[in-house]
Design a protein around this nucleic acid. Sequence first.
RNA 1: GGAGAGAUGGCUGAGUGGCCGAAAGCGCCGGAUUGCUAAUCCGGUAUGUCCUUCACAGGGCAUCUCGGGUUCGAAUCCCGAUCUCUCCGCCA
Length: 428
Amino acid sequence: MLDLQFVCDNAAAVALNCQNRGVDCDIPAIVSLRDKRGELIIEGDQYRQEQNDIASRIPKAAPGDRPALVERGKELKGLVSANKDALATVEEQLKEQLGRVPNMTHPDAPVGVEGEHVILREVGTKPSFSFTPKDHVELMHTLDLLDLESGSRVAGHGFYFLKNEGVLLELALVQYAVEKLRQEGFTIYTTPDVARDDVLHGTGYQPRGPETQIYSIDGTDLSLIATAEIPLGGMLKDEILQVDSLPMKVAGISHCFRTEAGGHGKATRGIYRVHQFTKVEIFGFTAPDVAISDAFHQNVVRIEEEIFQGLEIPYRVIDTPSGDLGGPAYRKYDLEAWMPGRGDGGEYGEVTSASNCTDFQARRLGIRCKSDEWKGTRFVHTLNGTAVACTRAIIAILENHQQADGSVNIPNALRKWVGTDRLTPRKA
RNA sequence: GGAGAGAUGGCUGAGUGGCCGAAAGCGCCGGAUUGCUAAUCCGGUAUGUCCUUCACAGGGCAUCUCGGGUUCGAAUCCCGAUCUCUCCGCCA
């Protein structure tokens, strides 16, 4: 959520930003609702002032004067109540409108619609095969790492069982990411896999809508988390931090649940797009200064890149265009890993994303900080990024490191946890 | 799952309808004093929001977990929610 005052003071810039991001917002309506809200607040305060005045005079008033005062008090009670209702209506409308306004955008982020991204760099060498590379579905079948049929039987399409070394690979990736993040000074957590709706909203997710990506639990205000970003951001909800304690670097291991409503297509083969996966997520709270959060953002991307370099997987880094940014993001970088079995002759597939949300999430979550340098409190900046999303990392590992005989070499970085340097076929 | 207790300012903790934005202590800030990294004394010390003001500042309103209700008036009474703690049960 943006600051109301900021939106009203910079209405033209905000409207332009909405346009660049392809989001339909009525900024003039927000300004007029803000004005209406101000009038109602003043009116209500005046009624309450009189109310307080009368209440304090009654005990001291001569008995004959009391009935008139009580009468006026009753009248005021009605006025205050009506004012409160009117204000609540306006605030609800305001919240609705303001809630749709996305974060402002980094001046260097590319302006454009989905797909008009900027490729910042390509790293690593794509493997060249003397044979036709298999895709991960085929590899996982012959290596006996995956059971999609059982997944469907138990939970429906989009669910799966990992099996044998498939399990070890997932655990190894988690270990690998956790080790890396601890070296980088992150405090690691396992998080709840569910969160309250207000935490979802605070982090910018929309539970219970018709097009929601979120599974919610009927009869409760809980939803399954789509990413550990949600509980990690929520863990400091309504807290006031000392600015010296920032940046706060945390990371979480969680399951992620996504309905993927309307997500059927060719990209859904195998475990590329699934309803549940395991992910290690990076999260940071920084001082409210764009230079500081920008630097942290670069650092998150650096860590993500080092993780994929360690897995010996070629990738490219994408600067996401304005039209493709989620509401809370000020800027977002994606890592796309090379997946030789994807599409026709290989394609890049998204494996991580790293977003700087500036104070957009913090404002709604009420996460503030204070300092001797300024009066009052300010909203911190929050950032999040994927360390490892297991299913997609597994795809990239298997497809890039496959051999002519159908075996797959395990990247050196994972061997100590997988317990072998090579996976060999079990099935035809 | 059952039974009980609780939630007050940076912290501890008083307060059972108007004199309470809230005692006291601690902490913190300023000052006084004292020849020993201490003690004592005096004063100050919440936040949000709106309005006035160039500004200094002043004023209104709100806030005793949150949301409703009763009342002319609620930290205080009633209802609901959330969270915390204790005991019992159950359980990986």
